[in-house]
Design a protein around this nucleic acid. Structure first.
Lengths: 340, 340
DNA sequence: TTGAAAGCGATACCAC
DNA sequence: GTGGTATCGCTTTCAA
């Protein structure tokens, strides 16, 4: 597949100059007369010259490409982040490899190995990566967006929301609307890091602080064996079938919230008054639902922007302003907490 | 940023052999004694050797990476295709650049230029690309998945569904359930190629064939200025407000269908009996809805598989079995056509 | 079985 | 202002 395209050498020949001069003109470096510039540029255009990045990368030890790792691009929240990050990186002159790890350590490992070999300049990890993988990335800069915990690498930045505070605020919102027995429902979290989601901490401290029941039976956590929508519905059904009751639900994710809302509706519960529900991520799911679901806006644009800026700073070898950047979140109330 | 990592030369030094031998061992080519193999492999491992793909690519004129272009990864249907294609390519040893063109010709052009420069081995275009862009890709093999029309390139394959037949089958399904006045609603199609969607043709011929009304007022087509969900709802509202009536809706996309269903529900219409609705793509939207929306399963797995296989064949320089591969579709009936 | 050396395409240093 | 040339890391003949 010897796809021999026109090289800098060909242009040098045609223009009757040296490759050094052609390189200078093409990169607008060094010095050359207007005449040679015009000549070289014209010939380059005529010949449809396209720089060979493999050669350039080899020489400059920089490929101008980065890897974006995420457990699941089909997840609405992650895909939005990926999209925005990719756009910003592109604007900065970087091409992105986008990689679906499926939360699988082995796959991740293979990816990282390949990407390091392909000489990416840095990594953007979205939504969590297992601890082993990035260690392979040697000295490459890494930015984590929406991942709990740091990995102790050298050139690393963490960008995310304050999850305990988010759990607190979600719970507080329900209390403000009169809820007294509040359930916590989560589904996928354990897939990526194991253990309880960080929001649970805020949920508990809020309840404790306000002297409300913090019943273990109301903490519903399911594995991600099926769409979180379905799983969430089953968790709610099981809980109610077991005779427990609640008047508020903190759902860690809009898909989860939608599953909860659907399950409650199916039982004839008046969602928004008898039981209030708040989701998380402000995704399409919360808006598609009837009643519309209250949620937490996490400002994906800001998460992506901060993350990419931090990575670019690291790539420039500059100082990173902070090792840990917290982006504020915002409660968005809709029908499922406001009622009607 | 002179990230000098261990090279084949370093290993040759340490092992007391030549770079040629190291290369042979590492690629399991040529011949060498077991002893040297073990030695080289051991040292490579110890030193954490990772091949420099930039160098390899330069030498071999193949980067083992391809570009996947799509107008919108946050679109459920496209993102599934992207995901599957990426996985298959990865399994075949290729890394994928994933690019969001946003249906914008200029962006696409910039992407393609960059990717050609980055020496991708081929292109997978999902969901349509503007005619200009791929011409830049010179001689590179191109596979189109779910894109109407071919682009007349040399090494090109088209994989998709039979859209007119799909429109026909959707319409036929509604007729079989007793619908006589059937509307056609579409939103985003014109964004990517302009003109009427291909399904409309099948819709019309089905109606004509069965001697049913083919009222221009029932063909609702909206631009993609806002979420198709909302847009679709407005189209339906406007149509009904204008005094037109229908008892069936062919919606070109599940998001569109969901918008239609919600709009009808809001007006107190009994969806599934008074008006039947069928969507397209078998995405999460059709399942999330109450009532569940009938739809068309397009077999994304098969689309991706056929596409990737065709590309791999082209990359191998082999003959492509066909220039135009049609993947069958399948009607999936749910509550919005079955009633109940 | 092993090695010396050419060369892929581009950059940059240092002469001229 | 311009050009010769070493160099990046790897593969691949061709000889030994």
């Amino acid at each position: 597949m010897a796809r021999r395209s026109v090289s800098i050498y060909d242009i040098a020949q045609l223009a009757g100059v040296s490759t050094a001069t052609v390189s200078n003109v093409l990169n607008n470096k060094g010095s050359f007369s207007d005449k040679t510039r015009d000549l070289v540029l014209r010939i380059a255009r005529e010949q449809g010259y396209v720089a060979n990045f493999a050669a350039k990368s080899l020489r400059e030890a920089s490929t101008k490409s980065v890897a974006i790792l995420t457990p699941d691009v089909s997840n609405d929240f992650f895909s939005t982040l990926v999209l925005k990050a990719e756009g910003l990186l592109r604007a900065a002159g970087y091409t992105s490899y986008i990689c679906n790890t499926a939360g699988d350590a082995e796959r991740e490992d293979a990816y990282v190995r390949d990407l390091v070999s392909k000489q990416v300049d840095g990594f953007v990890c979205i939504g969590g990566v297992t601890p082993e993988a990035p260690t392979l990335a040697a000295d490459l800069p890494v930015v984590h967006i929406d991942h709990r915990g740091s990995l102790g690498m050298r050139r690393e930045v963490w960008v995310g929301n304050d999850m305990p505070a988010m759990g607190y605020d979600m719970t507080r919102t329900l209390v403000a609307r009169g809820c007294a027995r509040i359930a916590l429902v989560s589904v996928s979290a354990s897939l990526y890091h194991g253990g309880e989601p960080d929001q649970a901490q805020g949920y508990r401290s809020c309840l404790r602080e306000l002297g409300l029941a913090c019943d273990p039976e109301l903490v519903l956590e399911g594995p991600h064996r099926q769409p979180s929508l379905v799983e969430a519905g089953e968790l709610v059904d099981a809980c109610l079938d077991a005779g427990h009751t609640f008047d508020g639900v903190v759902a860690l994710g809009d898909r989860v919230a939608l599953g909860v809302v659907n399950a409650l509706k199916a039982r004839g519960v008046d969602v928004g008054s008898a039981v209030r529900v708040i989701g998380m991520d402000d995704s399409i799911y919360s808006r598609v639902s009837t009643p519309a679901i209250s949620t937490v806006r996490r400002h994906t644009g800001e998460l992506a922007r901060q993350g990419v800026e931090a990575l670019l700073a690291l790539l420039d070898g500059g100082q990173t302003p902070s090792q840990r950047i917290v982006v504020p979140h915002e409660i968005v109330e809709r029908a499922t907490t406001l009622g009607e």
